[in-house]
Amino acid sequence: MNKDDTDITDESIVMLVQKGDKEAFGLLVDRYQNKLARYGRKFLSRVEDIEDMVQNVFISAYENIQNFDVTLKFSSWIYRIAHNTFVNALRKNTKSFLTIDFDTLLSHPVYDDPDIKEREQKEMRVLIDQGLEDISSKYREVLVLHYLEEISYKDIAEILQVPIGTIGIRIKRAKEALREKIDQKKI
């Protein structure tokens, strides 16, 4: 197999790794290391050792790769591991005994319109650069995944393991919070 082949899907590479092709795992690292680093930097905001964290994500992915179902999307799976790693890093700095996420309690309508997203994309990227650090990590994360990593609501719901409606409402609130913070900065 030519391992530089970009046509081969992530899931096919995983199958090779599961069968014992250790080198093939390098392809997955190539494909995701910078994406995960960007996600981590934006999500964690003030963390310096992002390289170590991303490395931990890949170590965890390799250790658990036999648990991956190749009929599902590898990208959602690796982002899920990254999410858990980053959340654990955040928790080290905050003492939260029991948290209830009220966004997950009830269902919310979802409008994941690609046309609207395309129009918003540029504006949101500018806003994210200006004020992402000032909003809570819960909101930062969905904005990064949706507007920077360009992941759909459905896939973000799989990554965060919450109902899809929760993603919709969280992105809406995140945008409001971001705009509010930027307005406050301007004043």
Binding site: K22, F25, A37, Q55, F58, I59, N64
Partner: peptide, 26 residues
Amino acid sequence: EKEETQINIKDKILNEIQSGDISMRP
């Protein structure tokens, strides 16, 4: 932004895999 997020950990990880420091759970 892209420059900020460029990292290269592939060799490090593959070395650890090859040396057996990291292994797959059955």
